[in-house]
Design a protein around this nucleic acid. Structure first.
Lengths: 180, 180
DNA sequence: CAATACTATGTCAGAAGTGACATAGTCGCG
DNA sequence: CGCGACTATGTCACTTCTGACATAGTATTG
């Protein structure tokens, strides 16, 4: 019954105990490329996971009015996660606004369109450079049984994606200049 | 105030008048790669677009208990769409379940993982073959001012995406065999 | 001729996700 | 010493999206 968000949270917790805040932070940086959630969603989801017995927590004095809650996986949580990992992912509908705009490109001013794609290309090139820098920090792939393998493999995916995307933007720009 | 779904509908209607049903069909096949919506959502959104004066319709006798409604863009609708096309897209969070699973791959049984990626690779290869067949039907890109340019350019994007994805799956499979 | 698929409209409950509001301590900077 | 950033929890209204239900005529196929 657990949602994919639930498993995303379990996946973070599998790497070590965290507060809800920590999970939200993880979903801002290393995970943001393939999964994100706001803290509001994370706190509600943690309550569900707790009710299902997939996580537990210990309290510690925290900064705000409430105590800090340090969550970790239960045996059931680990089992559920381990089972979920190799199940074929449910197909989610892609929704890509840039491609939708491209579908309607024939209606657009060519110059404004050129700016749009030049801007997108720049974004992809920036991210690509970031990812390439990150890749160098690993010197080749970690062993498959290592949590860091997950980080490396997802980075590889991001790298491929940014390259594909940048190529496509360049192709679009070439089409637009050819049509002048 | 119009949502992206609203613009997706306007984008279909810009190519000719359609019923709500026709729009839902368009979102099943040529558009499904980059945008989808169920008919329930389309009907509700059409009511909003109507209230905003971006679309109008004419009725005709239809099969069911209600009359058939043939929608088309108003001048305002076309103007809104034309303005939207070149505005930078709002960054939507990516949520990719397969990559999330990869992030957790270290917990998985290697053999089950191999099956997962082999299966995904097969899917991408099938789609790639379909897209390649479709591409041949165009003999090179249509002119940028032609609606068919939209179809071609989005197909190119899909082609690049499937290639990137298939490559990544192959890389994953190579990593998994190397670790045995 | 019966079953199934297709055309065509719509409603509604519920899940998933967003953005704002609310609270409060610590730490660093100018 | 005040201001902003960071740590940390939570609620709530609202939007978006899904899946099921409801209705009914025509066309195809076995």
């Amino acid at each position: 019954m657990t949602s994919t968000l639930g498993f995303a949270i379990l996946a973070v917790l599998a790497r070590g105990e965290r507060t809800g805040y920590d999970i939200a932070q993880a979903m801002r940086r290393p995970m943001a490329y393939f999964w994100t959630a706001r803290h509001s969603q994370i706190h509600t989801e943690l309550q569900k996971l707790l009710a299902e017995g997939l996580v537990t927590y210990e309290t510690q004095a925290g900064p705000g009015p409430q105590d800090k809650k340090i969550y970790r996986l239960t045996g059931e949580g680990t089992a559920a996660l381990r089972e979920w990992v190799t199940e074929p992912p449910r197909e989610r509908p892609e929704r890509d606004e840039l491609v939708l705009k491209t579908y309607t490109a024939w209606l657009a001013e060519p110059e404004a369109l050129r700016r749009l794609f030049a801007d997108q290309l720049a974004r992809h090139e920036t991210r690509l450079a970031e990812y390439e820098r990150e890749e160098e920090l690993f010197g080749g792939p970690p062993p498959v049984g290592d949590p860091r393998f997950g980080n490396y493999a997802t980075l590889r995916c991001g790298l491929g994606y940014e390259r594909h995307r940048a190529d496509w933007c360049r192709w679009m720009l070439a089409q637009l200049s050819a049509s002048l």
